[in-house]
Design a protein around this nucleic acid. Structure first.
Lengths: 143, 143
DNA sequence: ATTCTTAATGAGATTGAGTCTCATCGTAAT
DNA sequence: ATTACGATGAGACTCAATCTCATTAAGAAT
């Protein structure tokens, strides 16, 4: 389970590996993404950190997120509205997303057969699957 | 098979349905997308139309594409580089895309089992699948 | 064909997410 | 504590996409 101490440790290891320094701002960004509800956009994260009294800039938020995404601590999610969303990958099973066109709700799903098929399709074409983007845009079934 | 005459007819029907006028610009945009190679971005389409001597603006290109997408004549494709691509859906089987991370190549694929699975996943969650976004980011297998 | 109403267009301003610059700050090694 | 140099922040900048509004042109009516 993710404790604050464990999350700090994870961040420190990543920063060390990348030859980067451990700073208040980087910790704040990682904490914000790791602790809070999912699917938040960059500005949301920026505002939230500031509201907690930590001085940070948008530039630093974006720069830090890039590092976290590169090191697979965070996942970047494009829901098609021009703003990327971010979610922690720590203690999370892999999943994709269903976006409700009526409410904007984001529902997570996972299907192993689907994942296998994706690997197979890439392989059949002479490629190795690196990552995928998979969103289902849905509408509630009317009774 | 798609002939120029047939494509004009399709466009006219859509415009009529939408209560919109048939204009040189709208025809030029539809022709450009319908005739040319796939996966073109808006600016590409804009430049190409201009180079053929048809006076058009970026605003009109975007406005027309919106109408075409809304009426399922054109598909909008987000390949993750910040620029949407467009392709004609006329005389095209449905397919998804594999994007090569090394060359930027876009490969089309279709798998009926995959399509069925998506329908089922939405249904199992109480939703109706409206559309989906599905891209595989891949790397050539090294020999 | 000419007139007339109103939608469509174009040039350029604007938006907004994300990136970049560079003077200043702060980490952490010594 | 000093020092070297990486990190940060304010705000300029980028670029795809959208909006504004004066002008243009469909296409219906005559």
């Amino acid at each position: 389970m993710a404790t604050a101490a464990k999350n700090i440790q994870i961040l420190k290891e990543v920063l060390q590996k990348e030859g980067l320094r451990f700073t208040r701002q980087r910790l704040a960004v990682w904490t914000e993404i790791g602790i809070s509800r999912k699917h938040r956009d960059a500005d949301d994260i920026f505002i939230s950190i500031r509201s907690k009294g930590v001085k940070v800039s948008r530039a630093t938020v974006y720069r830090t997120i890039d590092v976290l995404v590169k090191n697979k601590l965070v996942r970047k999610l494009d829901v098609g509205d021009g703003k990327n969303r971010f979610e922690s990958k720590i203690d999370e099973e892999h999943h994709d997303h269903m976006i409700c066109l009526e409410t904007g709700n984001i529902i997570e799903f996972y299907n192993s057969r689907l994942e296998q098929l994706q690997e197979k399709i890439a392989l059949d074409n002479g490629y190795e699957l690196v990552r995928h983007v998979h969103q289902l845009f849905v509408r509630p079934i009317k009774k």
